[in-house]
Design a protein around this nucleic acid. Structure first.
Lengths: 149, 149
DNA sequence: CGATATCAAATCGTACACGATTGACTTGTG
DNA sequence: CACAAGTCAATCGTGTACGATTTGATATCG
C-alpha cells in the first residue's frame, strides 16, 4: 500500500521539480538580459555588495569556486564584471561591476515583480512559504555537514 | 530601502538553495546504493511502474531524453536496468528493471524514513509544505508554457 | 502507393554543480 | 628566518539540465 517510495509523496522530489520549474519560469524574463539564473544570482549578489571576493559570493549562493570561476569568467567576457587579483592578498580575486553591469541593475528592477505575478499568491503566503523552505534548508545543511557515519 | 532585488527576500533563491541542500543531504544516504539523486528518481519511477518507455519516465520526472538517455545508459551499464527497443514500435525504448534493479528496492526502503528524520518536522507540516510547493510548481509551469511574448 | 508530417529517442552544444586536487600565496610556530 | 600548515582560486573529472537538431520509424493524406 504505502511503501513510502512513491514519487508523488516525496517532499524532496517536489523541491527538485519546483526548483527546475522556477528556473524555466525565469528563462523568458532573463532572456532580455541574456543571463542564466545562476548568472543572475551572481549579479544580484554584486548589486547588493560590489567588490566581493569569489569566496564571499560563494558563501552567499552556497556555490564553490569550481562553479563560480567559469560562471564569473563568462560574465567578465560580456563586460558585466571585472575580476581583479587583490593587492593585499594575491590569493584573493575581487569581483567588481563594470558600468554596464551597474546599468543592468535598472533593467533588472522589474524582474521580482514579474516573477511575483507568476506565483499568483499573496505576499503573506509567499513570506510564509519562503520561511518554511529556508528553515528546511538549514536543517538539511546541519545534518549533512555533521555526517560522519 | 526595499529594492526587491535582495537575495534573502527571494522565494526563488530559497527554492534553488533548498533543492541543492536536499541533493547534498541525499548523497550520504544514496552512497550505499552508489546512485546520484536523479538516478534514484529514475529507479523510483521504475519501482513504481516497470517497463515504462523513456518518454513516460520523462513525463513523471519532467526531464527530456537529452537528460534521460545518458542517465539510463549509466544505470544499464551497472546492470540495474535494461533498455529494449519496443517490438510494436521501433521508435520506442522500453526500460525494465533487472533482478539487481529489483533487489535494490529493498535496500532503498529505508531511505524515505532516513530523510524524514533530517527534515525534523511533523508529517502534517511536511504534507502541507509539499502541497504548497507542488501548487507553486504547477503555477510556474502554466505561465511558462503559455509564454509567447 | 508515395510524399509528407509527426513522433521517439539520441545526439550536440553550452552551462551549471560538486568532490577532489593543484598551485600560488600567506600565516603561524619554533 | 625557515618551513609546515592553512587559505584561496583555479582546474579536472563526472554527472546532470536543456534548447536545438538529427535520425529513424510510423502515421496520414492526397
Amino acid at each position: 500500500m504505502s511503501d513510502h517510495l512513491r514519487l508523488d509523496d516525496q517532499l524532496c522530489f517536489a523541491l527538485y521539480a519546483a526548483s527546475r520549474a522556477m528556473t524555466a519560469a525565469y528563462a523568458p524574463v532573463l532572456e532580455k538580459l541574456a543571463l542564466t539564473y545562476p548568472q543572475y544570482l551572481a549579479m544580484l549578489t554584486l548589486w547588493e555588495d560590489d567588490g566581493l571576493r569569489v569566496s564571499r559570493i560563494g558563501e552567499r549562493l552556497h556555490l564553490d569556486s569550481a562553479t563560480l570561476t567559469p560562471l564569473l569568467k563568462r560574465l567578465e567576457a560580456r563586460d558585466l564584471i571585472e575580476r581583479r587579483r587583490s593587492g593585499d592578498d594575491e590569493r584573493v580575486v575581487e569581483v567588481f561591476l563594470t558600468a554596464a553591469g551597474k546599468r543592468m541593475k535598472r533593467q533588472a528592477a522589474e524582474i521580482p515583480r514579474c516573477m511575483l505575478e507568476k506565483f499568483d499568491m499573496s505576499i503573506a503566503e509567499l513570506v510564509q512559504l519562503r520561511g518554511q523552505v529556508k528553515e528546511l534548508t538549514e536543517k538539511l545543511r546541519v545534518t549533512t555537514s555533521s555526517n560522519r557515519s
